[in-house]
Amino acid sequence: MAKQYKVVHCTVNGKEIEQVVDVRSSLTDMLRNDLHLTSVKKGCEVGECGACTVIINGEGFNSCIYLAVWAEGKEIWTLEGLTGPGGELSDIQQAFVDEGAIQCGFCTPGFIMTSWEIVNSGREYTDDELRKALSGHLCRCTGYENIFRAVKKTMLRHLGKYEEAELVNSQGITEYPEPMPFK
């Protein structure tokens, strides 16, 4: 059976690319195999684990169930695009390191892409909303609390709430100091 190919034009991590793909290829396949962006992980391939998450036109998508041909004209960001020119980590990546939100690291790129979308939304999520926003990702190592804390602290810092970010305890709860007793 003859395969059908198509040329896809899109922007990946700020660079314009032109790539010939099999029309059945997933975006994960194109990013990993053709563009060698291996931060995009192949996990479940059914859209459940979130390890393949990339940002397309500002929104998070499971690239494993997204056809490469649908990327025509789109702006795509993967984890590789978040680091600085000298390999400096972005603030959300650094927060994952600082909070010990990484163990085996397989789920980490996907988590960071969704977190990036969250922290750049300019919105203050409640703890409940934040947990729900991250619920499209599975992590079998960390138990989620450290990841949650890293995202929450970075979100607060992006909103200029530096002091509040320092009050987030190990359970991810913001612990406000007791008010001084009135005399």
Binding site: G47, E48, G50, T114, H137
Partner: peptide, 8 residues
């Protein structure tokens, strides 16, 4: 539950 899946 997955927001990334809800986007699709």
């Amino acid at each position: 539950a997955s927001r990334t899946k809800r986007n699709m």
